[in-house]
């Protein structure tokens, strides 16, 4: 089996500090024979030379850094707004849940006063019948 495998691959030596290892590590690509087949396939299909690809990668890297910096600037503005939104939302959910419990107690009551009766009906409608909190 080992002999068969050895026949299937050609071992080639390259320097330990070769750029290939750095690139493979950076891209999290293994360098087993299957991966090498795929990588060579990409190399064969590439429309650019290695120098052109280096230049393209350099430009893309600069573009990525700039966009990342833009994103950080926007994120700094968004984070406090999200915090405020979530804080208000959580507070509202808590008050709604408390009101729902109080409304359930109110269901058992039947006020004689017409105004209170209207208030009771409105609150039952809002916190029990129409409530999305289940």
């Amino acid at each position: 089996m080992k002999k068969f495998w050895q026949d299937q691959v050609k071992r080639i030596s390259i320097r330990k500090d070769s750029e290939i290892f750095h690139l493979a590590e950076e891209l999290n690509v293994s360098l087993d024979s299957k991966a090498i087949r795929n990588v060579i396939g990409l190399g064969m299909k590439a429309s650019y030379s290695d120098t052109q690809l280096e230049q393209i990668a350099k430009e893309l890297e600069e573009k990525r850094k700039k966009i990342e910096s833009d994103f950080q600037k926007i994120a700094v503005q968004t984070i406090p707004l999200e915090g405020k939104y979530m804080g208000t939302r959580n507070q509202m959910i808590k008050v709604y849940q408390d009101n729902r419990v109080l409304t359930m107690y109110l269901c058992a009551r039947s006020p004689r006063n017409e105004r209170k009766k209207c208030l009771r009906d409105r609150l039952i409608q809002k916190y029990i019948i129409d409530s999305k909190l289940t």
Binding site: I20, V29, M44, L53, R64
Partner: peptide, 17 residues
């Protein structure tokens, strides 16, 4: 072969970027 591996990896890098 080494050149094609290098080009393939560089090509992959541009795709990732």
């Amino acid at each position: 072969t080494v050149e094609l591996i290098r080009i393939g990896l560089l090509s992959l890098r541009t795709t990732f970027l």
